[in-house]
Design a protein around this nucleic acid. Structure first.
Lengths: 339, 339
DNA sequence: GGAGATGATGGACACGTGACCATTTGGCTG
DNA sequence: CAGCCAAATGGTCACGTGTCCATCATCTCC
């Protein structure tokens, strides 16, 4: 593996001059520059980011921790972030936490060990790793939360306008005539500290609807739990006339459950969900969704992180909100009986 | 950021002793070991992988290059590989090539710059980066191909048994009575050098069916191209009675096209596809698929790579094939007219 | 033509670790 | 208690780069 010394020797210049050909080529005489460039070419030299990272104190590396790479929301986020950092010459180390704070801590250690310059994190619930994140920042990593943030978090974040989107969804269903609306999972300060479920009661209040206690259940926002909860809800003596799924993963479980119960959408029950996953437009009927601008959020996150990293303003706190977009396709309609 | 020297000082031992507490704790007196461990704890010391990587000549890092992270096949692969390498103390750098060899080369450079110990790559088509990969191997990176491999590749690979799976799919459709079967994309040595499309004519021959030239079109295996090709095929004077989609991304385009044409599955046309993507079981009818054991393939790839890395047997070539699994759900049936 | 400014190039060192070799300590034997 | 050996601990240096400071050549100006 040739290094910069080999390049210098071959070009007949001092190591410093060779390095300058890479970082400050304008300082060199064109003729010298050309000689060095040729030597680089001939040897196939490529700078060792590891050595550079050691000297610099941080690597040209960004960490991205998501909830679960399999969820299309995160897959798209990974892709967008990967492209954005690559175009700036950084590499992306990807991990997930499966919403588990122990696994999260283990993976944070790995990222810290690799001295990532920046970290974009979708933290899990449960016991907080905020202390560890703070220490990472003290030691040179810029931290930005995405999609969720810890209460009292000292870090910036990039988020959907969850409250506004829930309000919009509830207004939409209310306008269609629905009076009995259920979300798939309700708020809980510890197990489910999520903005969407938290906003739901407020949204009902805003349109003058009561919160139906029977529909309130704390669950994980996964497909199997959403499946079970949907079955339970629809078997109640007075089932909801509309189901509001809090993410696209839940929606798959709900859709499956409704299908198995033989309920027609939207005649028997309306279904609205967050996340415009591609399958939602393939099923019958295609689903009404609230789309998140995932790519814009990802690119913004990278900009914030790299800006802070390159100016070494690690304490800068940036908070950005993005609006959701309601897409109507036909899975929501007036309720059967306006009881 | 405390380093091992700070730890040594605090524990009142020499640096070497402190290092041994991490790598060879059995050499230390239990009492000394305890003192060092306490110092590590108190300082919150964590080894600098960058410095270690420099000294060692390679980092505890594996590169994974996929075609497109958004495709569920690759998303699942990323997740599996990430978990597998993390459990062995490695970090994963993820990139994609969008099946474009120029982007691929740019990203390979990034990976090489970071001195990854191993590389798992799903290469794109077109101009080959084989030379660059060979140079990476010469310089210490173990290379393993996955899902596709270059003709004359000197590297090992982990692959589906594509030919066997295509044979199984064709036998299945033939047994149902189909005589006019089309794949979504046919073989081309340069633009589409893919095992599945290549195996298709042989499979037809094996069951005694002729290859219908009218159905042979070279396309990229993407959703929009599959959508267009499906429209074209079904508008032919003598359209196919069964469509064999070569991957799950194509299947979405085909399904959409068939829906727009008002064709009923499987009464008017049967649809069979590679990849058991989750949406395929949600649509009406649920699709018959050939499932790949993605997770097993990912874990196997990691095992092969880490084994070679840790024993520094970079020239070892391992080739593994995994069988596909046909799952029947109802999207394939007898053709309308057995003409 | 000499002083000073500018352009162009060179040399030395530190980043934190792992590998290797050197030294000290303690226990046992005769 | 000397001698020896193993156990335990210590010291030194190189990995390849980025940064800082130093040197040398050339040009300008009065």
């Amino acid at each position: 593996m040739p290094n910069i010394l080999d390049v210098a020797k071959r070009a007949g210049v001092a190591p410093t001059t060779a390095k300058r050909a890479i970082h400050e080529p304008h300082l060199l005489k064109p003729e010298t520059l050309e000689r060095v460039r040729q030597a680089i070419q001939e040897l196939g030299y490529e700078p060792d980011q590891v050595a550079g990272g050691l000297r610099r104190g941080r690597t040209q590396t960004i960490g991205l921790m998501v909830g679960n790479i399999m969820e299309p929301f995160f897959a798209l986020l990974v892709r967008t972030v990967a492209h954005a950092v690559q175009s700036r010459g950084y590499a992306l180390i990807v991990t997930d936490n499966e919403y588990d704070s122990k696994l999260e801590l283990a993976n944070l250690r790995v990222l810290y060990g690799h001295r990532v310059s920046g970290l974009i994190i979708r933290s899990g619930y449960g016991e907080s790793n905020l202390d560890y994140l703070k220490r990472m920042r003290e030691r040179g990593t810029y931290v930005l939360e995405i999609d969720y943030f810890y209460p009292d978090s000292p870090f910036g974040h990039v988020m959907l306008d969850n409250e506004g989107s829930v309000f919009e969804g509830v207004r939409y269903l209310h306008a269609l005539g629905h009076r009995r609306i259920a979300t798939l999972g309700s708020y809980d300060p510890i197990y489910h500290p999520e903005e969407r479920s938290r906003a739901f009661p407020k949204a009902l209040q805003a349109v003058g609807l009561p919160l139906i206690e029977d529909y309130q259940r704390v669950i994980l926002l996964t497909e199997p739990e959403a499946y079970r909860l949907t079955l339970e809800l629809m078997r109640l003596p007075t089932p909801p006339t509309a189901i509001f799924s809090l993410n696209g993963t839940e929606a798959a479980g709900a859709f499956r459950a409704l299908g198995e119960l033989g309920l027609r959408i939207p005649q028997d029950v309306s279904l609205l969900t967050f996340d415009n996953y591609s399958w939602t437009s393939l099923v019958t009927p295609p689903l009404d969704v609230i789309e998140q601008p995932v790519e814009e959020m990802g690119r913004t996150a990278v900009e914030i992180v790299l800006e802070a990293v390159e100016h070494q303003t690690l304490d800068k706190v940036v908070r950005r909100r993005f609006p959701g977009k309601l897409i109507r396709r036909g899975s929501c309609g007036p309720p059967k009986d306006s009881s």
